[in-house]
């Protein structure tokens, strides 16, 4: 079981969160075309490594969190609110 240190609510059990997918997958612009959207929706690397992912804290603050988790050990290295995470990204990647 994961325990996720929510930046708002503190350390909380996985059961309070809903996984919302790969946070490195950036939605293409609306006119980005089928290939870009296909890649956004379906193509995943599934690597044994650190992984950025979205988790929605439905059982707590209902904020969307960007979590950096190791896919092998489940260790969580960083957690931040989606607003902070997106503002830290280069404009092109938002």
């Amino acid at each position: 079981m994961l325990r996720i240190p929510c930046p708002w609510c503190g350390l909380r059990d996985e059961i309070e969160f809903r996984y919302r997918g790969d946070a490195t997958a950036i939605r293409p612009a609306g006119d980005g075309g089928v290939d870009a959207f296909f890649s956004y929706v379906y193509e995943r690397d599934n690597r044994r490594d650190w992984h950025l992912e979205w988790w929605l804290h439905t059982g707590g603050c209902r904020r969307l969190l960007e979590i950096e988790r190791h896919t092998l050990t489940h260790e969580i290295r960083s957690v931040r609110d989606s607003a902070e995470a997106l503002s830290a990204r280069p404009a092109a990647a938002r």
Binding site: R20, A23, W54, L56, R62, R63, L64, S82, A83
Partner: peptide, 17 residues
């Protein structure tokens, strides 16, 4: 009802903040 709320909250925070 729960899934649609989550869907909207997700997009409002991730894809159209």
């Amino acid at each position: 009802s729960a899934a649609v709320l989550e869907h909207m909250e997700f997009h409002l925070q991730a894809t159209c903040p």
